[in-house]
Design a protein around this nucleic acid. Structure first.
Lengths: 127, 127
DNA sequence: TCATGTGGTCGACCTCCATCGAACAGTTTA
DNA sequence: TAAACTGTTCGATGGAGGTCGACCACATGA
């Protein structure tokens, strides 16, 4: 397998030191994520809804607050953090908003097929 | 996709009506399993250990009690039931024992890549 | 400076589920 | 019949995590 240098933190690109908020934005490369964490991340329906919405649009175009989710903003923030720690999404501060990107190629390399299953999911019914 | 006739309950093969215990052994075809149930099933480390052990041996050679698991027999029975209802394993009564088979081709067709991820998992560390 | 909008953090609550001991059921052998 | 073995079911328990309201931190614009 290809052990890449996980030091190329992509969120650091965009400034010498970044803002104070951005410095708290820690990312984990999918290659460093245990299978347990990856499965736990995608096992939640709200998080799968986030991933599906994110997959349908270009990178860095969706802020956290723009997702249609049946939970409050505290829970929403929690879910985004779980996805970030599982190597599934990447986040970047854009003014007061935090925009997202689905880490599809990296995650696919670490867990082949898993993200495809999530994105191909047929919504239960009716909705 | 190939919608196969899910009425070919394989556990019924082997007798006209089977024993009383066998009649309570209900199976679910992986094609009828929601993604949520499949993910929930493989998200548990004990169940993944069962799947990995099962994958290393021929079908119908491992009874439930022969698995090396860090849980009591009540919990063990629970986990096997979850795997059965998720379409991951097939069970058959052999005397007082209940032997198992990994439903690898059927499950792979319904959830491509998922079982591979589980079986390729590297045990956390040390051992 | 203030107001607004966005998102994170904290504490608490609550539900789900993994876990266990005990009792029960079925099979085999004596 | 009894004993031994295997596995299930039941009821209870504990912990992990999803959820919320409230408050806090940061960025923008007037």
């Amino acid at each position: 397998m290809s052990i890449r240098s996980r030091s190329d933190s992509p969120a650091d690109a965009g400034g010498p030191a970044g803002s104070a908020r951005a410095r708290n934005l820690t990312h984990v490369h999918p290659a460093d994520v245990p299978l347990q964490a990856a499965l736990d991340a995608v096992a939640d329906p709200v998080r799968r809804a986030i991933l599906c919405e994110l997959a349908g649009e270009p990178d860095w175009t969706r802020a956290c607050g723009t997702f249609d989710l049946p939970v409050g903003k505290a829970t929403r923030s929690h879910h985004f953090a779980v996805l970030r720690r599982a190597g599934l999404i990447e986040q970047r501060d854009a003014g007061p908003r935090r925009v997202n990107r689905l880490r599809r190629p990296e995650f696919d390399e670490a867990f082949p097929g898993l993200l495809d299953l999530v994105l191909k999911e047929t919504p239960p019914a009716g909705g």
